[in-house]
Simulated scan of single mutants.
Amino acid sequence: MKGYPLPLEQTTHTGLKLSFRELERADVAPVMALEQQVQSHPWRASSYDDCLDGRHHCWLAEHQGQLVGFVVVAWAGGDGELLNIAVAPQWQRQGVGRALLTLARERVRPFSSMLFLEVRVSNRQAIEFYEREQFSEVGLRPNYYPAGKGREDALILAYQF
């Protein structure tokens, strides 16, 4: 969704100044490198091509020109889905995740009445974060995620606008 106006800057509750922009082709490698630091099974480059082609929407958060996080969403048929969100380890717990989630909700809201996401059942930190952000558990997807040994269930969470 190129050209959709973004809030250019936001300051987190810790005083961190963030700027936001849309993913560009040159960003794919740094985004993948960031994701590899925080995800056990990161996306392939082809998944980010969907963002560049307009099927999904990816926004980057930067601090002083340095990539600190990103979020990927999609929407159709009145529902939105948070597909991916990541914050570089050295920038976690400074409000970056909350700022990215807020941005995602702002972008999805005009097109959706609900924002859904899946999260590994073992990821208690993320589940607690989403619960603080008013997401509610609405279901379970058995064997959804690849895991070190076999598969892992995903909780389905939803935020109602």
Rank of each mutant, 00 (worst) to 15 (best):
Y145R: 11
P89Y: 12
F116G: 00
K17T: 14
E137S: 09
Q134H: 13
E152S: 04
Q39W: 11
G148S: 13
Q90H: 15
L6C: 07
C51H: 04
L60S: 02
E9C: 11
E137D: 09
A33Y: 05
T11F: 07
R55N: 09
A76I: 14
V87F: 08
F116S: 00
Y130M: 04
F20D: 02
G95I: 03
M32L: 15
Q39Y: 15
Q92F: 10
F70M: 05
F20H: 09
G15N: 13
E133I: 00
L34W: 08
S136V: 14
S122M: 06
C51Y: 07
E131N: 12
F70D: 01
P30C: 11
R93C: 03
T102W: 07
K2T: 12
G97H: 06
Q94F: 06
P110G: 00
A158H: 01
V96I: 07
S113W: 05
W59Y: 09
H56C: 07
K2S: 13
G65M: 10
L155Q: 06
L140K: 15
A86I: 01
L18F: 13
G65E: 09
A33Q: 12
A88M: 12
E24R: 14
A76V: 11
L16F: 14
T11A: 11
R107Q: 13
A104D: 06
R107T: 05
N143V: 08
H56G: 00
Q37V: 00
R124Q: 15
L83N: 03
G78E: 07
R98L: 10
V108M: 03
R44E: 15
Y130C: 01
D27E: 08
L117H: 00
I85T: 01
T14V: 07
D153P: 02
G3Q: 05
L34N: 03
L60E: 07
R44T: 15
R55L: 14
E81R: 02
A76L: 12
L23N: 06
S113H: 10
E152G: 03
G95E: 06
V87K: 07
L103Y: 10
I127D: 05
V68A: 13
T14F: 10
F129N: 00
Q64S: 13
R141W: 10
H56F: 13
V121S: 03
